[in-house]
Structure formats: C-alpha cells, structure tokens
Design a protein around this nucleic acid. Sequence first.
DNA 1: ATGAAAGCGCTAACAG
DNA 2: CTGTTAGCGCTTTCAT
Lengths: 338, 338
Amino acid sequence: MTKLTDVAKAAGVSIATVSRVLNNPGSVNADTQQKVQQAIRSLNYKPSRVAQRLRSKGGNSKIIGLVLPDIQNPFYVDVIRGVEEAMYEKGYAAIMCNFAQNEDKERLYLDILQSESIDGLIVAPVHGRDQKVANMVLSGLPIICIDRGLTGVEADVVLVDNQQGAFDAISHLIKLGHQRIAYISGLPQIPTSKARLAGYEAAFKEHGLPVDETLIKYGDSKHESGMRLTAELLDLPTPPTALFTGNNLITLGALETIHSRGVKIPEEIALVGFDDMYWSISLNPPLTAVRQPGFEMGQRAAELLFQRIKDPARPTVKVVFDATLQVRSSCGAAAKNS
Amino acid sequence: MTKLTDVAKAAGVSIATVSRVLNNPGSVNADTQQKVQQAIRSLNYKPSRVAQRLRSKGGNSKIIGLVLPDIQNPFYVDVIRGVEEAMYEKGYAAIMCNFAQNEDKERLYLDILQSESIDGLIVAPVHGRDQKVANMVLSGLPIICIDRGLTGVEADVVLVDNQQGAFDAISHLIKLGHQRIAYISGLPQIPTSKARLAGYEAAFKEHGLPVDETLIKYGDSKHESGMRLTAELLDLPTPPTALFTGNNLITLGALETIHSRGVKIPEEIALVGFDDMYWSISLNPPLTAVRQPGFEMGQRAAELLFQRIKDPARPTVKVVFDATLQVRSSCGAAAKNS
DNA sequence: ATGAAAGCGCTAACAG
DNA sequence: CTGTTAGCGCTTTCAT
C-alpha cells in the first residue's frame, strides 16, 4: 500500500501538504496542487481509512453499522438496499450484521461495531428494551432505529404503522364474512408483533366481534414456525376460516403447510400476510398482503443518520410510513375495495 | 471509550502488560493477570479494533470483505448466511457490499475494503476478467472467489457445476418431449451465464437436436429482464413450448409475465429455473428448478479464506458443488425421473 | 515478568 | 502557503 510519505516524496513536498490537497484543497498553491494530484494519481494512492479513523474524533470515518434481525426476510433486504443506495452516494461503507433474531449475536456485533469506531448505526433492536442499544444511544453514538423503536430512550426511529396495517388486513377479512380469523405472530417480545396484535384486536372490537385466544399463535418469526403453527391451527376441531400471518417468512411457511395438506386457498382458508414481496403475485394463489415500503424506509433511515452525524443535537424524530394492503386473490375473488 | 491506559492505571501496571494479558496471557504473572482481568472487566474495556488494525501487519484484524453481485437474489442471501455463520464463530466481522451487477460500484467497494485493511475477501467478480480483483489477488491479499472464477489468475474458487446443472434441466425438458426450449440468460459476460449456456447447448447436441438461436435471449440478470424477455418469447410467431431461466430473479420475472397473460404452466409452456428457493414449492405452479447449495458454499468459502489467511502459500483449490434438479410440477405431472 | 518507547498512517495545530 | 510535530490506541522489540 502506498502511503502519504510515498506521495510526498514523489511530489517533493511534505506529507502535510499532501494531506491538505486531499482534505482542504483551497489552502494550497495551484502548482503544488498539480504536482501532488499528479503523484497521487500515478502512485494510485488511496488513504488508509483505518489511520484516518484512528486519528479523527468520529463522524469522519465514513463507515456505519447496519444491524438487522433476519437477512432471509425480503423486507430487510429491501431495507438494506435502501440504506446501501444512500450510503453509496456519499462514499460511506456499511458493516452489515445479521443477528438472526439472536440477542447474543446482536450484542457481539454491536461490540464489534463500537470497537470499529463507526460513525453511526442503523439498527432494528431485538426488542423494545434492548439495553445494549439504549446504552449506545446514551453514549452519544448517532443511532437510527428502523422497523422497531426503543422504549425509555429518545432515539430516531423509522417504521410503519403496524397496528393500522394489521387493522386493515383483518377488517378486509371481516368484511369478506370471516369471523374465525387466526393470527400467527412472530416473537412476542418484538414491538412489531405487539402492534400487529393490537391491530388485530382493534379490528375485532370495531366490528363488535369477540377475539378467540385459541386462534392466536406465537412463534419465532421464522419460516419453520409458520409451517408448524399453521398445522396446529388446521388441526383444531373447528379450524379458522382465515389466517393472518405476522411476517413474510411465516406466510411462506403457512403456504407450504396449507399446500402440503391439499387445503384450498381461499375456498377453505383465506390468507393475508404481513409484508409484501414483489413476487407475491406469482405465489399460489397471488397473495393478499400488507406492504411495508422497505426500500424507502432504508433510504430515509440513512438520511436521518447523516443528519444526526452532522448535528448530534438535532431533536429526535419518528418517521411513520403507511402500511398498505395489497389485495390479490388469497382471500377470495378480487374484492371491490381497490 | 475506555482504553489501554485507563485499564493500566486501574490495575497499576503498564499498558504493555495489559496488552500482554490480552494477547499472550501465558507470559504474565498470575497475580498481575488477575488484577488486570479484574480491571478490564470492571471498566468493560474493549480494545479498539481500529488501532489494532493500524498497528498489526495484516491477518489479525478479524475483518473481511464480502462482495456480492445482487442481494435481492436469494441465492446470494444463502451465501451470505453461510459466510456469516462461519465468521461469527471465529469473532470475525464482514463488511458486506452489494454491487448490484454494477462494475463501478464493485470497484468503489473494493477500494474501500482495501483501504480498510481487511484480512481477506470473498467475492463474486463482475466477470471473469475482473482486473481489479485480479490485481488484489496478485497483491497478496487472501481472496476466495465464489460462484464465479477468475481467468488468468490463480485463485481459490467455490462454485457449482453450472454446465451440468443446465444440462440436466434441459435434458429433463427434452425427455418430456420439448424441442423448442428457450433460454433467458443473465448478463452474457458473467461466467455462470456462459457455463449455463454451454450446458443448454450440450443437452441439445446430446439428443441430436439443433439449437435455435432465436430462442436464446440475453438480459441483465434482473427481475425486469425476466419479464421483458419472456414477453418477447411469447410474442414469437411460434413461441417456445418450454422455458429455461438463467437465475432466480429472471424466473420470478418470467412467472409474472406468463401469469399476466393467462398462459398456462405447464400446459402451454413448461418452466424450469436455475436457482431454487425454499419457497419454490409455493409458487404457482410449484417450480422445477436447479438447486445450488448457497449456504454450504458460503461456509466453505469462509473456511478456505481462514486457511489462506493462516497460510498464504497454500496451493489454490477449486471446490465444485453439484447442482441438483428439483423436480416439481412446472414442467408437467411429476416426472418419473426422481 | 514487566516497563519504556518506537511507530502503524494520518490529521491538525503551530511555526515559519 | 508549507513544513514540523504531536498524538489517535495499540503491539512489539528492547531493556531491565
């Protein structure tokens, strides 16, 4: 690796001058400028980001952390793409960490990121009372929470109105005449699971219908849990007539179980999932789902992070996107409502 | 951030001693050891990986780069998970970069990684003659290529037998009686596209059938190209009776176009895709596809990288996994052949 | 067994 | 406008 001294030697100036043309071009003689630029180019010099990071206080390292619960979930992939696009434009790099819904793993990654002296962090905390993340916020590191907030600490957050999304989904089902509507939740301690449950219950209340607790199942937010819990539901003496799945992966698991048993959708059971996928239309049947704008959320989170890095004192904000129901045919013939 | 001096002060020893208990515990008095450990714990000290990195020559930073062409493609997500699992166990962190099939982006990320002084790199090069990656290999950085190799440079590589995978897929179709079999390729310069095309042609040859060039379309490996090129194929005076799609995303795009036109699969057109997805069974219809073991490939690549970091002189190896045809129903009633 | 000190590559005073 | 120099936090000789 060629370094500052090499360039300085080649250009016949001091390393300080080289550093200046890199960081403060205005402050140096045009001729010198030329010579140095020339040397930099011919030596193909690239500053060591490690040395830069060690030297500067923070906020100039152009590296941030991105910590997400499950990279297999296409929603988070969209978030990643959104974040990444915004980062790319600003020459930032992201250390991406997938903690697979595992708190220990999350902690390890967070430790690593801290010791990597990142400029900031975008994270979907394991749960609302994530002490580790809360402490990092308190320590002054610029942090944006995505998908899930933190309780008890002031922090920027960008998420979707989960309650409303679930409410819309269940209302749709109720209007179609369903009453025995099951809900397969992800990990119960995750804020989004709670909000979606709240929306589920609110919809029943709104229509004066009782909630049947036996139709609510809790899993771990993964594919396998969707398969297993759907089987349990189908095995009930009187199975539900409709199913609301708490996330992408659960939906796919549910679909697998339903198909393997030869149960017809939507005739024998209607299905609406939380989280849309761009290929939901190619599923059997085309899936009705609640869409979260993951890409936009990721972009937005990145922008908020840049702002906070620049101005750590900026008041915290909460950005709430709409969750929109995409009606296709897994709940019956294309309904009138859009 | 607490640092070495803080710990040293608290333990009443020099920073050198603290460093020793961290890196070479054997070389220090048991009592001192205790005191220092104690101090480290109570101060919750974590060494700065940045400083460590700047100091040490390379190979001790516990950070590697992972550069992949498209994070939207579930195959690469599997690769990521495999790499990540292996890394996690060894306390490594990965800087993950998604270059979205864009060579400029790839170059930028590679530059960043170099200047981050990574210990090693796992990469799926944009194409076989990727100069940037080739130079990095030549520079001595431990590198493992995944999914695609490099021509003209000796480098470790782990991939799948793409030609054989495509051959099996096409043979399957031919045995089912198809002759007008279209192939929608990804970017033509990508080695996997070429190998899959070779498999396609080989299958025709094997069965003494001619290849119809008008049935071969080239796209950019993305979803949209799958949609568009499928439409072109369907618009042909005599459309193909079967379609072989070059990757996951293309398959999903093809499915979307086919459904939107109300064309029946497999009655009017049979479909087999390269790349399987765990939810392929829930597509309409359940998709017959060639499976690549992405997770295992990722794990393997990580192991090879660790080896190479430890022993840069180890001869390069080429690990070839099998690509296995998963027969479901998108080519017709479950065929006899497994 | 432990400490002092050099130096990794860079930035930012401080002089000149 | 440009050069000299002091660290950033750590590892590693080299002394002791």
